[in-house]
């Protein structure tokens, strides 16, 4: 029962933390509930499909289907997170100036809610498919321990959801003015961690063969498999022994997002229309 609780808990917080950040980033946006719950529902459905067709998926692309699929959906999420941040940088400021907070939130909601819904969907799909496979395995085995294991799974779900809620409400204690700065920082690190994870899948599929040597190892300080290690892995992409390609992807993503945000955040060039501030 404990093992079921732990595995479900782990997967649920990994997806839940991402949902928590997305919820905080869309604080006050009307109809965000629909995008987020739509993302969760699509993710759960996708997770069941991926679990049901795990064998077929793996067999694609000379046996690399699983790796390519994981890398693709991670990179999709990275793109969506980047787009959200860049859009916020380009419009957040002028909206805040011109329309005040309410207007800003309405417009933001329209534009990037769908993107964040996709991110939620990807997170739930990735972690959810593992939960589905695990629980299906239990159910298929039968036996008397079945009920206990499923109860453990349910407890894990509740505990994982509670931690995620804690994350969300914790973020909400940040004053509204700073909240979006904090969430955009979190989203940047989230995207960087996902990009590094995508690189790992591409390496395991044999598509990236350069820079696979471990650069440093901090497992003595924090084990990636521990619960704090897992949380940091999900939140900021903590890896105990990263290789060169992973580090490059991580830093490159942060750099690219910051650069795009800076470019997008600049007011549109209107020659001679405005004196320099």
């Amino acid at each position: 029962m404990l093992s079921a609780l732990l595995i479900v808990f782990r997967e649920v917080i990994e997806a839940g933390l991402i949902v928590g950040i997305v919820l905080a980033a869309t604080q006050g946006v009307p109809r965000r509930g629909r995008a987020v719950s739509g993302g969760v529902a699509a993710g759960v459905l996708g997770a069941c499909l991926v679990a049901a067709f795990a064998g077929e998926l793996a067999a694609l692309f000379q046996g690399n289907g699983q790796e390519l699929f994981n890398a693709s959906i991670l990179l999709l999420a990275v793109t969506m997170l980047t787009w959200h941040n860049v859009w916020m940088a380009s419009h957040g400021r002028e909206m805040a100036l011109e329309l005040k907070a309410a207007g800003h939130e309405v417009v933001t909601g329209k534009r990037t809610l769908a993107a964040l819904g996709v991110v939620v969907g990807v997170a739930v799909l990735r972690e959810g498919s593992e939960v589905v496979l695990f629980l299906y395995g239990i159910a298929a085995q039968g036996g008397t321990s079945n009920a206990a294991l499923l109860a453990g799974g349910a407890l894990g779900l509740v505990a994982g959801a509670a931690v995620s809620a804690l994350m969300y409400f914790g973020l909400l204690t940040i004053p509204a003015g700073r909240l979006f700065q904090v969430t955009s920082g979190l989203i940047t690190l989230l995207a960087a961690g996902m990009a590094a994870q995508a690189v790992l899948f591409l390496q395991n599929g044999g598509y990236i063969n350069a820079m696979t040597g471990t650069v440093w190892n901090t497992s003595w300080l924090l084990k990636e498999d521990s619960i704090p290690g897992r949380l940091l892995h999900t939140l900021v992409g903590y890896v105990e022994a990263p290789d060169g390609a992973q580090i490059l992807a991580y830093l490159g993503t942060i750099l690219a997002i910051l650069l795009l945000m800076r470019v997008a955040g600049k007011p549109a060039p209107r020659p001679r229309a405005q004196p320099a501030e």
Partner: peptide, 9 residues
């Protein structure tokens, strides 16, 4: 984690 692999079979 040590081998940096997660693969469903």
């Amino acid at each position: 984690t040590a081998l940096k692999v997660e693969k469903v079979v």
